[in-house]
């Protein structure tokens, strides 16, 4: 049982870290396009879309690297969980306001599925949960941060 939990912990930590590192890296490549994606949610004043787009990818990269390297796993996992909650909130608010998050340039019916995005975020939350709560079981107290 204990070794099963150990695999669960390391699997969650590595998968979560990899996903955040990857997502952050992709978005850091094209900050201006990411700003456009954020602006589509109509949650922030115009300039803040750009500032958030500039910073968020690097926050994700740092959290991802910490999770992958096994240092400061609990704060990194907590941060990933909190960010995911923010994403879920933004998605739900866009959905409730009936916003056109997708393009609709050529076919008015083309929509990205909000349900799909919510399911993905739920998965991230579960990974963050295991990474956070199982951390101290498999590390010596001295390094248990």
């Amino acid at each position: 049982m204990n070794s099963l939990l150990k695999y669960l912990y390391h699997g969650s930590r590595l998968l979560l870290g990899g996903l955040f590192l990857f997502a952050g890296f992709i978005k850091a490549q094209d900050v201006v396009a990411f700003a456009g994606n954020i602006a589509a949610y109509q949650l922030l004043p115009y300039q803040f879309n750009y500032l958030l787009a500039a910073c968020l990818p690097y926050i994700e990269i740092i959290a991802g690297v910490l999770l992958l390297t096994g240092r400061r796993v609990r704060p990194a996992a907590l941060l990933c969980g909190l960010l995911t909650l923010v994403f879920i909130g933004a998605l739900l608010s866009a959905w409730m306001r009936g916003l056109d998050i997708s393009c609709g340039c050529f076919s008015p019916e083309a929509k990205t599925s909000i349900g799909e995005a919510l399911l993905r975020d739920l998965g991230l939350l579960i990974l963050a949960h295991f990474s956070f709560h199982l951390r101290n079981r498999f590390t010596t107290p001295r390094a248990s941060r």
């Binding site: 968020l56 690097y58 926050i59 990269i61 740092i62 910490l66 400061r72 704060p75 941060l79 941060r145």
Partner: peptide, 22 residues
């Protein structure tokens, strides 16, 4: 409390890196 403080440090680092990279 310590974990939350470290979360803030990560966010601050990310903001500094993000702003200076852009």
């Amino acid at each position: 409390r310590r974990v939350l403080l470290e979360v803030l440090v990560i966010v601050a680092l990310g903001v500094v890196m993000g702003l200076s990279a852009n």
